[in-house]
Nucleic acid binder design. Sequence first.
DNA 1: GCCGCCTAGTTGACATGTCACCAACCGTAG
DNA 2: CTACGGTTGGTGACATGTCAACTAGGCGGC
Lengths: 158, 158
Amino acid sequence: MCQLVGTIADMGWLTGKEMQAWIGYRRMRLLLDLQLNRDLMSQAGLSEADYDVLSNLSESPHQQLRLTDLATHMRWSKSRLSHHITRMQRRGLVDRHDCKDDGRGSMLVLTPAGLKAIEEAAPGHVESVRKHMIDLMTDEELAALAAFSHRIVAHLSE
Amino acid sequence: MCQLVGTIADMGWLTGKEMQAWIGYRRMRLLLDLQLNRDLMSQAGLSEADYDVLSNLSESPHQQLRLTDLATHMRWSKSRLSHHITRMQRRGLVDRHDCKDDGRGSMLVLTPAGLKAIEEAAPGHVESVRKHMIDLMTDEELAALAAFSHRIVAHLSE
DNA sequence: GCCGCCTAGTTGACATGTCACCAACCGTAG
DNA sequence: CTACGGTTGGTGACATGTCAACTAGGCGGC
């Protein structure tokens, strides 16, 4: 982490303020991730990735989705999703069904166990997110984060 | 990504504004990381992790550090660093020396190849960080990011 | 119908990170 | 001096993610 940029002989590639923002971002990202994952894993036995998949699935119509749609929505690669679903399927959290409309496709469905898992995990996860991030920010900071993150996401999505 | 929280039956665990900030953060984190890694890998053949290690090492006195010190500074686990250093050592970017003061320790040193790699990679990486993040943010947003990220890091560091 | 091309999803090899455990070494209380 | 508890770093098993093939099923032009 730390001096990620502009540090060799301090050539001033990033100004002090920019550097503070960048370093802070990197460190926050690392530590927040670890903490949220730890909390979620110890409270609910789920990783953040599991949580995201279950969460998306639980709110889609009929609690089912095409793999590609889910991958696009989550911005995951198909490969990543396929591997991850295989692992979650082994644990009984989700299931694959054949897709009627398209012989190539797979329909991803939430199992009762998966629904139970996400319902039990959600309150603790939200509390965790609040405690370690949201509640530490002012309204202005929240608004700023929403604004620049959406701008950056739009830029990165071409 | 997306509806990570408070989404089951929309129970309002996070307010709309909080949700926007949270979702934006998650997506930005995912996409920015991918992009910066892709850029760095294609331009310099380094991962961000490689870059961070080399960067930290290059600015320490005599371009060498104890493993524990580097791990603490980067907030990496010792195990992660040890594995990563082993891989970088195989590629000739860094080297381990015995530590005179402490028979247990290892001194991490930057090789000439490692120095060359970080010096060549730095300008492109900084440009990448600017292009995909810093230059898309206003001064106020940079200040806000620096402020809340440092606050959150302090909180997470206990 | 048939052919070429696109898309959906899977797979295997490999890179990376985590956790738990271990061996060697330090420093200090007795 | 010696034993013990803490520190330093390494290792192996395993979870996860990436990339590049690959299979199989659609789709449009002829």
